[in-house]
Amino acid sequence: MKNHKYQSVIFDLGAVLVDWNPRYLYSKIFATPEETDHFLENICTSDWNEMQDEGRSLQDGTELLVSQHPAFEAQIRAFYGRWKEMLGGDIPGTVEILKELKESGQFKLYALTNWSSETFPIAIIEYPWLQWFDGIVVSGKEKMRKPQDAFYQLLVDRHAIDKSQAIFIDDNLRNVKAAEAFGIETIHFTSPEKLREALTSRGILSGAALQQQ
């Protein structure tokens, strides 16, 4: 029978569909993994990067860090100056799942991503499959981000999503728990294989949604 429980599948992008990792860049800049780890854990931190994801300009974020850590000016400026080198390509197994969902015609597909509005246009060019989504909500453009309730609310309001008939996929457990608290069923992404298993068990993949087409 056709799957009536789910109407919308919502994807995170980074580390789910897009292989983005600052270490791809900084392994070229620093001599050892320890130096790279120290830099990313203490200077260009994930918390700092998320402020750009929330709408702070790349220039403002960069100049702030340069003023705080002048000895690392060149390495700090590389973060966005060489940002494209952090892209490792797409994650094929998940992109294949996205393709299957798109081709089934049974689900609306959305992306909810913490991403700077200044770097997201690069992703649009690099990953043609982003055109498969029925809607993409980018934190940097909206000046809010996961795990803020308002960001999930914006997604469901803008696209008239029924929370009770939606499922959200994210690799960040913090964002998964926030979505659950907001009232959306979730899958904590750890690998394409595990995601396929989780979607199959819900009747979203493996033909269950296609039997009455």
Rank of each mutant, 00 (worst) to 15 (best):
Gly135His: 02
Asp12Phe: 03
Arg196Ile: 12
Lys84Asn: 02
Asp170Phe: 08
Gly203Lys: 09
Thr32Met: 04
Leu58Ser: 07
Ser117Ile: 06
Gly183Val: 12
Met144Gln: 13
Ile161Pro: 01
Lys5Met: 12
Thr200His: 09
Leu195Trp: 09
Asp12His: 05
Ala166His: 11
Ile161Gly: 04
Phe79Lys: 02
Glu73Arg: 13
Gly61Thr: 05
Asp19Ser: 08
Thr186Gly: 06
Trp129Ser: 00
Leu199Thr: 10
Gln131Tyr: 08
Asn114Trp: 00
Asp149Trp: 10
Ile136His: 12
Asp134Phe: 06
Glu193Pro: 01
Arg202Ala: 11
Leu210Pro: 00
Leu199Lys: 07
Arg56Gln: 13
Ser201Lys: 15
Gln153Leu: 09
Asn114Cys: 02
Asp47Met: 11
Phe168Met: 07
Leu65Pro: 06
Arg196Trp: 14
Ala198Arg: 09
Ile29Asn: 00
Met86Gly: 03
Asp170His: 09
Ser191Trp: 11
Glu63Phe: 01
Ala178Gln: 06
Leu13Cys: 02
Ser8Phe: 00
Thr190Tyr: 10
Glu50Phe: 14
Leu13Glu: 01
Lys99Asn: 12
Arg56Cys: 09
Gln165Thr: 14
Pro121Phe: 08
Asp37Glu: 15
Tyr6His: 10
Phe107Glu: 02
Ser206Arg: 15
Ser8Pro: 00
Asn114Gly: 08
Pro22Glu: 03
Trp129Gln: 06
Gln165Trp: 01
Asn3Leu: 12
Val18Ile: 15
Leu199His: 08
Tyr80Leu: 06
Met144Glu: 06
Ile97Asn: 09
Cys44Tyr: 01
Phe107Gln: 03
Arg77Gln: 11
Gly135Glu: 04
Glu142Gly: 03
Trp132Gln: 14
Asp19Lys: 13
Lys177Asn: 13
Ile122Tyr: 14
Leu195Phe: 08
Gly55Tyr: 02
Glu118Pro: 00
Tyr80Ser: 05
His69Ile: 04
Pro33Val: 06
Arg56Lys: 13
Asp90Val: 00
Asp149Ala: 14
Phe133Lys: 04
Leu17His: 04
Gln148Ala: 12
Pro92Ala: 11
Ile29Met: 01
